[in-house]
Nucleic acid binder design. Structure first.
Lengths: 357, 357
DNA sequence: CTGTTAGCGCGTTCAG
DNA sequence: CTGAACGCGCTAACAG
């Protein structure tokens, strides 16, 4: 071992220039480099030019982790969603990402798998990164999660639901500080139920998978609508815990019709189920909507192009992501909380009546 | 202004306990807390118990940013994908996420919008976070991107393509260090072309959108297959730059048939296009596959359930994400690079012959 | 097995 | 407008 002691450099940025390097190259102090790069008009034109030149020449990229430690701002936002395979949350995420990105914030995605306990674990892991804000899905959190959230000093937004309904949100702590962006799942479910009833359907069934709280609220709404119309039949509800998919929709359609061959309308809690059901109807020669009306939920891609085009409820998933991110940004930038942002944003939904009903 | 001077605390973890707090509470040094928490068997059982108790009691969450600065490991991985609305990359991302997560790594998602220049900008932004590894989509990067990548000391993996084909990868720098995980887009395109020819089809058309390099390679493969079969007709290619969608597939089917009513087979470069085409065929009363064979690509959700079930090519998108993450982890954990990992992993593809051809 | 020392690369603060 | 001192919270390196 007579070789030179090539101790691995401790730096996280092996070989990359630091602010001190740029400062030396530009003949100024590190502090001036920092200023020149972040607020160009806080330094003289000449110094600015020298710093910019040196910075470019050395390929300087400021270290966000050092910056974060010094300034107490990580420029990251924790985004917790149940799943990466459900298009609904991808759209949400896309809205968040496209809104945060131009402001320099990095989303930290956390996948909870629809479980409140897993959500708490994921949140805890994300918090270790000291995000400047947190976006969650839904309001059904563990007490531990609520505790964590309450202890935070950064803004938090809950999405895809409204605080006002079901009392889920408070978790016994009062709804005081809970900020939400979403729409009323209950009302949306009600709308589709009412629509089927108005169409004169009498033997209306329900098919639902992925029984998370939001799905349940939709079902509750649908149920209420049918009760109000005097046409609710609990026997015609087919609820399964499995994740929704086209394949599952096809399968459940058959099971539903086997149990109740006289069914004349069906609400499926997600469009992928509805598309599967539609395919299966085509296969079985069941005329839609003549013999069976079919309604979906979410207005996922392609819903307008099925044969026949699918009646469904359009949900503002991307807009929810955009608005949640906006609220967060407002709370993060403006540390004085000057303009009061709304506590609860209802982005609504739209019943898309097409040809399957 | 006679109120007490409530200077905002400089800490990034307002109110939260630090390691020093835990150390004090446990009656040990901060270093011992660090050790007790990260490698429990490197301290005595008694000390470990005291530290764990104090840590739990104070609700201590170690700061990853401080840890990152001190240890030169951020536990983050930059993941660059073209889009968040294309299911292909979502699946990739899901594979990456589910593989990184158990090891404590946080994916940092970057969306490039299919543009090499945007990709370079996004990469630069991600690098400011000092990721411990980088995952990219494709091999068509700007020279600036290649420069950045070459300057990195952390592992980099390119996905969805193979280094060997097309010579795209080297960018003039030689393929020396380029690590890829993917499959041959060309061969996959060839397979579908050959399949259509083998089925006896003679007037075969192509419909493609989202003309990124991988789509082009698929088309090249398809073209080669038709040439080999003596059935290539450039006039029957309909290429548009727009993002693929069910709606676009329906529209392009009509345009293709309007231009060439005698077409007897069609390859659509993505399943969403193919599904749209299928819907439109049903609408127009065109029997599939009798009068027109239809083939898609990717085997997206539902492809097995369309009417009739869609012939397509199954691509291992999630597996690519998993394998890319695996390679990265190997390179990140094992800093000595003891076991040599493969440079280029071909995960293959599968032709799914169903009923549309 | 445990403690001490010395930074990681920036930004805040206050002086000039 | 610019600079010097200091510290963010943690861990590497070395003693003991």
């Amino acid at each position: 071992m007579t070789t030179a002691p090539t101790r691995k450099p401790r730096s996280s940025r092996s070989g990359r220039a630091t602010m001190a390097d740029v400062a030396a190259a530009a003949g100024v102090s590190a502090m001036t480099v920092s200023r020149a790069l972040r607020r160009p008009d806080s330094v003289s034109a000449e110094v600015r030019a020298r710093v910019e030149e040196a910075s470019r020449r050395l390929g300087f990229v400021p270290s966000r982790v050092a910056s974060a430690l010094a300034s107490a701002r990580t420029m990251t936002v924790a985004v917790l969603i149940p799943s990466l395979t459900n298009a609904v949350f991808i759209d949400l995420l896309a809205g968040v990402q496209e809104t945060l990105s131009p402001h320099g914030y990095q989303p930290l995605i956390g996948v909870t798998g629809y479980g409140p306990e897993a959500e708490e674990r994921v949140l805890r892991a994300q918090l270790a990164h000291d995000p400047d804000g947190v976006i969650l899905t839904g309001l059904d959190h563990t007490p531990g999660t609520w505790d964590l959230l309450r202890s935070l000093t950064v803004p938090v937004v809950h999405t895809m639901d409204l605080t006002t309904e079901g009392g889920l949100g408070d978790g016994g702590h009062g709804d005081g500080g809970v900020r939400t962006v979403g729409f009323s799942q209950f009302d949306a479910g009600y709308a589709i139920g009412a629509h089927l009833a108005e169409r004169g359907r009498r033997r209306i069934g329900l098919i639902a998978g992925q029984l998370d709280p939001r799905t349940r609220q939709r079902c509750d709404g649908w149920r209420q609508a049918l009760r109000d119309a005097g046409r609710h039949d609990p026997d015609r509800e087919l609820l399964v815990p499995d994740a929704t998919s086209v394949a599952l929709g096809a399968e459940l359609l058959e099971r539903a019709l086997a149990a109740h061959p006289d069914t004349d309308a069906l609400f499926l809690c997600n469009d992928d189920l509805a598309q599967g059901a539609l395919f299966q109807c085509a296969r079985l020669g069941i005329p839609v909507p003549e013999r069976l009306a079919v309604a979906g939920f979410n207005d996922l891609a392609g819903a307008a192009w099925t044969v026949p085009p699918l009646t469904t409820v359009a949900t503002p998933r991307r807009a929810i992501g955009v608005e949640a991110a906006r609220l967060l940004i407002a709370g993060m930038e403006d540390r004085a909380q000057s303009r009061p942002e709304p506590r609860c944003v209802d982005l609504g939904f739209r019943l898309m009546v097409r040809e399957t009903t």
